[in-house]
């Protein structure tokens, strides 16, 4: 069974089709990099896979379930453009909150483990509004990985990260892949993404222009896939 399945998905904003008959799949343990120019539909596709909006046509499945099913949502972790943590709460309170929402057996213990892993244990009781940008980003990574999701949906995960946050993220993504988790990430930072990607999908005006394994040519020259299948 595919970890993520996208079958004939269309998504309309008014009359405009942001996604046109998109077909993709990612097997367990795969890392699919969604690439494409601005406005190609990468974020729309990721948000639709995450269940934030329903497709106009077609079907999306996470391990065979609809993304809005509780079982599917337990298996998903999402990092979007925002950090999705509350400025008014402390780092520990934020992670404990999400641990409770995901029904973890011991939310506080899981929160402490991830604070340690992301180097935030010393500021666990500090309010997020007092955190630097890098600390907030690491907390966002901890929030997304807290419930050990089997499918990770990452929208531009490396954008605007500081060096330490990039290192933390790359490390946890490598560990996730090594443990058989599935990653779907949209990105403009091809070099960082292609280091991890096992598969690549190029979106062009809402359509899949290319979908296949990440080849040595792509890893050597991140612009290769654009030159060959993109608009140039």
């Amino acid at each position: 069974m595919n970890a993520v399945g996208v079958e004939g998905v269309w998504k309309f904003y008014g009359d405009y089709p942001a996604l046109r008959d998109v077909n993709l799949e990612a097997e367990p343990g795969a890392c699919l990099a969604l690439i494409g120019r601005n406005g190609a539909g990468k974020t729309t596709l990721l948000r639709t896979i995450a269940g934030f909006s329903r497709p106009g046509k077609g079907k999306i499945s996470i391990f065979g379930n609809s993304p809005r099913d509780t079982e599917a949502r337990k298996k998903m972790g999402y990092i979007g453009h925002g950090i999705s943590v509350y400025d008014e709460l402390s780092a520990l309170e934020n992670l404990t909150l999400y641990g409770r929402l995901y029904g973890l057996a011991d939310p506080r213990k899981s929160a402490m483990e991830w604070l340690e892993r992301t180097g935030l244990e010393r500021v666990k009781n500090g309010l997020v509004r007092e955190f630097s940008r890098g600390m907030r980003q690491r907390l966002a990574v901890a929030r997304a990985f807290l419930h050990e999701p089997r499918v990770l949906l990452l929208d531009e995960p490396f954008t605007a990260l500081d060096d330490r946050a990039i290192a933390v993220l790359q490390q946890v993504l490598r560990e996730a892949l090594a443990s058989g988790k599935t990653i779907v990430m949209s990105t403009h930072q091809l070099r960082e993404a292609l280091e991890l990607a096992t598969h690549v999908a190029l979106l062009n005006r809402g359509q899949v222009a290319f979908h296949g394994p990440c080849t040595p040519e792509m890893a050597a020259d991140p612009g290769w896939v654009y030159a060959r299948y993109g608009e140039g």
């Binding site: 509780t70 949502r73 925002g82 509350y86």
Partner: peptide
Amino acid sequence: LGNDCLDALIAAPIP
């Protein structure tokens, strides 16, 4: 809306 917390709440496995 601040920090896109609504996305995380919608993604959480709660009705």
